[in-house]
């Protein structure tokens, strides 16, 4: 057990916390195949679940904080440093860097809460709910296609699109951030399974290609 008396405020807690896939750090390092497919964990992002009617007045107030709300499935709205993913017609996931969290000097959660006010809806700090896997490289799509039924071909799945779906039977939000890079948001308790599943799917690309 950590010596709790040695903790001084929030920064003491920051030093002892562990991300859901921290125990896989070494495996992710050795399992990645640079130039083909690389898997990393990008832990501790600030996330907030927002439920609000986007056409209402409070929806407009939330949109002014986040830089817009996505209007349909797959869309990602946002401003510099803040992204808003569409989860449902009135449900959104706000993702930002770790420093945007109120406990680290940011004001994202607080400003969302005050933008909602007493209006119907909710703003919930979900920063600990999910972790982030970053899968990138020319083979990233082939890895995902082993366990995702969506059409991931670039003609259909464009960069800047995020969809809630299943990867390796795990419910994840799959966000295509670039031509060859994906971000996966599994819930924390699935992080171990999904990390190992992805490493297994990546393994064949470490061997030389058979012509």
């Amino acid at each position: 057990m950590a010596n709790t008396t040695a903790l001084t405020g929030i920064n003491g807690l920051r030093d002892i916390r562990r991300s859901p896939a921290s125990h896989l750090a070494e495996a992710l390092e050795t399992g990645s195949v640079p130039g083909k497919v690389v898997l990393k964990e990008g832990p501790f992002q600030t996330m907030a679940g927002v439920r609000v009617d986007p056409s209402s007045e409070e929806g407009a107030r939330i949109a002014s904080v986040t830089g817009g709300l996505p209007v349909r499935c797959g869309e990602v709205a946002g401003r510099e440093g803040v992204s808003v993913l569409w989860l449902g017609p009135s449900e959104f996931l706000v993702v930002a860097a770790e420093e945007a969290h109120d406990s680290l000097g940011g004001d994202l959660i607080g400003s969302l809460t005050s933008a909602l006010g007493d209006a119907p809806g909710q703003v919930v700090d979900l920063s600990a709910n999910r972790t982030t896997y970053e899968l990138s490289g020319p083979r990233a799509r082939a890895v995902l296609e082993k366990g995702c039924a969506l059409d991931l071909h670039p003609r259909k799945f464009k960069p800047g699109t995020a969809l809630s779906t299943e990867v390796g039977n795990i419910p994840v939000t799959l966000w295509k951030t670039g031509e060859e890079s994906f971000r996966l948001f599994p819930r924390a308790s699935f992080a171990d399974f999904l990390g190992r599943w992805l490493l297994d799917a990546m393994r064949e690309y470490a061997s030389p290609e058979v012509p």
């Binding site: 499935c73 449902g88 449900e91 809630s164 779906t165 299943e166």
Partner: peptide, 8 residues
């Protein structure tokens, strides 16, 4: 119910 997607 589309439980894994839009939850509607």
């Amino acid at each position: 119910l589309h439980s894994t997607g839009c939850r509607q």
